[in-house]
Design a protein around this nucleic acid. Structure first.
Lengths: 224, 224
DNA sequence: GAGCGATTTGACCAAATGGTCAAGATGCAA
DNA sequence: TTGCATCTTGACCATTTGGTCAAATCGCTC
């Protein structure tokens, strides 16, 4: 009857979970991402998550003792992946290449993990009840660091002047739009990022527009 | 005991509601926008909407017989306002002026009606269960019409080539980002659109970036 | 294969919530 | 003032849902 919750009591080995725990937590988190991203926190039900994970509600509650705990774990699980691309912006690279690669990566993320994008958007739109501290802490530091990188590029004349943070917001907003609003995109164009042609068309349009906007030319490989 | 619902039985005059109905429906829709935009459809409760509207739950249900009816009415109420700016894009104007004005207007909307923006975003992210027909109908026609306007500008050499629909998406995504993600914007910059200085800074940055991106120069008045 | 903790589940509970209903209060025309 | 439709509400109900619990089953070590 020991609860496994959160960082869990590491029953046997040092820091690891048992094979069963590993598998079930993973199944739960996948199901939770699907459910939360589709219905939001309030609209999701523990029972549906359990069903999608292939276990009883009671058993799910054995691994995560509350709905909120599932939600937090799901958020934590995707957050690292979600913010990874920005970390790669390299001050020593050429702005055009770096930004083109960043934009492509972000659009790729929107294509590969639209649910994660929507979950994150949902959380922030509700006022970021769970992740506000992260936004104000880690994310803020990261953005300030990368803003400095952009500022350096501007000061060394490598690109046009712009408020770095607004450039970052524009890249986030635009790239994530294709995931979060994919239903609308599909309704208006008949296609979405799952279509490889539309994907490349989107990368080309967005990269062209934004790089052009700061006085850069898209590299031949388009950031690929 | 007659229900007032939807388009309502116009009890007395021709097409009009009684003074009391007018007032209460308006109070309800305001409260509903606040509640739905904050909590989403599932997270919102009829009781809280009623409380915020200053009446009993029962009375609210007298005006809108189901939660879904309130939600639909709220959406319908904001949708027209929300899509209005795009309609003003004028094929006969100069692209720079027209687009600068459009961008400013959209950011102004994000500043003035952030709740409407979030409600709309929420609805679309959940798969647009209520407004999909509108997206595929009226909105699609409108976007196609305006895409043609942009296409004309391109063909007459007034602006650089870009896929018009992607330009529209980028403008939507970016301008609405400042409303939908305002908590994040605030966490990262310490400010949001309610700060007049930040508002103008945002208009300048976004307008500069996007107009530049299609080979245009921002008009002196910045679209104001 | 015995023993014991880890895992799994169905039965159950309490709170929240959307919606109904009958009765009372109010506004207004004659 | 009377009469009637509009408006308003508290009491109430059925369902959904997050979470508890005791009992059963499983898996692994000795």
């Amino acid at each position: 009857m020991t609860r496994v919750d959160g960082q869990g009591v590491d029953s046997q080995k040092n820091g690891g979970l048992s094979r069963i725990q590993e598998r079930n937590r993973s199944l739960i988190l996948d199901a939770a991402l699907s459910e939360f991203s589709k219905k939001g926190f309030s609209g999701a039900t523990v029972e549906r998550i359990a069903a999608e994970a292939g276990m009883s509600k009671s058993n799910l509650l054995y691994y995560f003792s509350t709905k909120e705990a599932i939600y937090k774990a799901t958020l934590a699980h995707i957050l690292e992946v979600w913010l990874a691309p920005l970390k790669m912006l390299d001050a020593d690279g050429e702005p055009a290449r770096e930004l083109a690669a960043y934009i492509r990566q972000k659009i790729q993320m929107s294509a590969d993990y639209p649910q994660a994008s929507r979950l994150f958007a949902n959380e922030v739109m509700q006022g970021a009840p769970q992740i506000l501290p992260i936004l104000e802490g880690d994310l803020k530091r990261l953005v300030e660091e990368k803003a400095k990188v952009i500022e350096t590029w501007i000061e060394t004349g490598k690109m046009q002047r712009i408020e770095p943070v607004h450039l970052i917001f524009t890249i986030w907003a635009t790239t994530q739009h294709y995931a979060d609003f994919s239903i609308q995109v599909k309704a208006l164009t008949g296609r979405d990022l799952s279509d490889p042609v539309f994907f490349e068309e989107t990368v080309a349009s967005v990269t062209g527009l934004l790089l052009n906007g700061i006085g850069l030319t898209v590299p031949q490989d388009g950031g690929a």
